[in-house]
Every structure is written in structure tokens, then in C-alpha cells.
């Protein structure tokens, strides 16, 4: 079957697999992390047609024809090869987390949040960040990073 990932059409062999394992094992997109595997931790979060989705609970066949966006699809590479990070990525570089395991999920959730709501309140940021578990307790930096990302996005970065 065919899968739309990060703006490209990819050929996928395993139709009876979960999206997470197709992304990681078949397409080599290991930016999407495997955490709990049972839909609790949020580290496998990707966007499907712009909506936050747990790839560990999503059969790949059910997203055929839909636009899947992973962490690897956020940064832009210019003609000169220079990489421009997505504002959310840039903001997390400035406000990093400790071990980073949950980070891809946090980034994807923040991207979806800011697409829907360019100027979230601190409460809305906390609400959104709460769907991604961080065992290092990095939520203060998540809060700062998402607010910073909103600022960067408004500045047109």
C-alpha cells in the first residue's frame, strides 16, 4: 500500500502493522518514539491530517491516503542545504528537556496546538502538554518552549 509521509508518497510492505512500526522499522523514521505501546505516554504522537494521533494504536491501513507528519517532516532544507528548524523545534532547542524520550511527542502536540491556536494561554499549553508524559518532570521547560514557539511563529520564523 501507499502512505503519504511528510509530503512524500512511500511504498509500504506491511499492511497489517501499526503505524508506529511502519514508520520506525520500514521507513526508518525513528524520530517517532516507542514508549508504553498502550496509548498512555504519547511519545509515539504523529499528525494525521493535522490531528494528534497515537501511532502505537493506529493500524497503518486506516491512514492510507491521509497525510502523516512525523518529527522528520517539520524542519525545512533550503536549496543550499541549510536546515531551518520548525519554530517548535527551535523553541525546544532553547528550552531543552532532560532525557528527551518524550520530546518528539511534545513537539508534535505543540505543532498541532499552535496550528489550531496561535496564541494559547498557559492553561491551554498545560492541557496540551499533559497528553505527553515526561518522567523527568520537564514540564516547566515544555511550558516555556511552547510559549516561545508561539512567539517565534507569530514573528514569522
Amino acid at each position: 500500500m501507499q502512505l503519504q509521509v511528510n509530503g512524500k508518497t512511500r511504498q509500504v510492505q506491511r499492511e497489517d502493522e501499526l503505524l508506529l512500526w511502519v514508520l520506525r522499522d520500514e521507513l526508518g523514521l525513528t524520530g517517532t518514539h516507542y514508549g508504553c505501546g498502550i496509548g498512555i505516554c504519547g511519545s509515539c504522537t504523529v499528525l494525521v491530517d493535522g490531528q494528534v494521533t497515537r501511532s502505537c494504536l493506529t493500524p497503518v491501513a486506516s491512514v492510507a491516503g491521509k497525510a502523516v507528519t512525523t518529527l522528520e517532516g517539520l524542519a525545512r532544507t533550503g536549496r543550499d542545504g541549510a536546515v531551518t528548524l520548525h519554530p517548535v523545534q527551535q523553541a525546544f532547542v532553547e528550552n531543552p528537556l532532560q532525557c528527551g524520550w518524550c520530546l518528539p511527542g511534545h513537539v508534535m502536540s505543540a505543532v498541532a496546538l499552535l496550528n489550531a491556536n496561535p496564541a494559547p494561554t498557559p492553561e491551554q499549553i498545560d492541557d496540551s502538554a499533559g497528553i505527553n508524559l515526561c518522567r523527568c518532570g520537564g514540564y516547566n521547560n515544555v511550558r516555556k518552549a511552547v510559549a516561545r514557539a508561539a512567539e517565534l511563529k507569530r514573528g514569522g520564523l
Binding site: 496509548g39 504519547g42 504522537t45 494521533t53 497515537r54 502536540s109 497528553i131
Partner: peptide, 8 residues
């Protein structure tokens, strides 16, 4: 649930 549950 949460946004991911509500989306699926």
C-alpha cells in the same frame, strides 16, 4: 480521554 483519543 485526551485529544488523541478524541481524534481516533
Amino acid at each position: 480521554g485526551d485529544p488523541m483519543v478524541r481524534n481516533r
